[in-house]
Design a binder for these strands. Structure first.
Lengths: 157, 157
DNA sequence: CGAATTTTGTTTACATGGAAACTATTTCTA
DNA sequence: TAGAAATAGTTTCCATGTAAACAAAATTCG
């Protein structure tokens, strides 16, 4: 009964119980795993996932309003302001306030920004499949598709 | 050619391109989605996912060393120290330094802590399925299993 | 029209979480 | 066994990201 009595304290078989099937918990663990793999390989190249994703999407949607971009990437406006500011300072992004609505800010890549995206693209998009060690190609494909559906991304836009 | 010339600026069909199949991006979106749903329903009850998960696992593994718990939950030691401190202050957790290794800290729920976990369990474990709006029961089940595999959680421990 | 409301983005103050450096204890090794 | 190395946790400082309050411009509506 006594704590000190029970010899061994704990080894590496920790029980998770029902939480092992909690979507939130599983997503968090998966994300940390991907994150770690990402930083092991790419962070030293000055590549931050959020920053790169933002530039990538702007590259595909030149002139996108800052707020729309924030909603699509699920980034809060306050944070978006800072991300944009940094990218502008780094010379990768241009802010434009259009005449027909002087509240909004339209975002476009600078030539440097476009070059940056083009250059880092293979590393960024290629760092993931090796992560799927425990999953075969088909399972990984299924996981991707299910996550897309989960996120309401019906087609692969 | 001119930006101002092209009439419409952008509407709600934003192009993601290849990043729409990036595991990291998809996981982030999914987690934000789950997080939002969680807070809409439960945050007001003073329930924080990380804190609850920690208490939950300690409840299932009484006397678990703090470091082992941190590794299992993928929480950094520095942060774990703070989480534990808060839970101790809230009267939900007990820290014990055993005589046979006075470096380690063993964690156990207080009666209050156990009551808290028991009480919040249904809300915490039940907030998720409704989120799977876009997925049917079988797909959701598959997603859970694939995420477990992805995380190296072979059996449902 | 002109006041009230909504939309868009910024600023400030704070919370969350991690890296690096540090302390204490235990284990290894010469 | 004494010194070196490893392990466990804490502390300090910093990066990331959010909420709340705000400012400016556009829209609504009486």
């Amino acid at each position: 009964m006594n704590k000190a009595m029970q010899g061994r304290i704990e080894e590496d078989k920790v029980i998770f119980g029902e939480i092992a099937s909690s979507i939130g918990f599983l997503l968090r663990l998966a994300q940390v795993r991907v994150f770690d793999a990402f930083f092991d390989k790419l962070a030293r190249h000055g590549l931050k996932p959020g920053e790169f994703t933002m530039l990538w999407v702007i590259g595909l949607n030149p002139g996108i309003p800052q707020g729309l971009l924030a909603r699509k990437l699920r980034i809060k406006p306050a944070h978006m302001t800072k991300l944009v500011q940094r990218a502008v300072d780094a010379g990768r992004l241009t802010r434009t306030v259009p005449d027909d609505d002087r509240r909004t800010v339209l975002l476009t890549l600078t030539p440097d920004g476009a070059r940056f995206v083009e250059e880092k693209k293979p590393e960024f998009l290629g760092y993931l499949p090796r992560e799927a060690v425990a999953l075969d190609a088909g399972e990984f494909e299924t996981l991707i598709r299910l996550l897309q559906r989960f996120n309401g991304m019906e087609d692969a836009r």
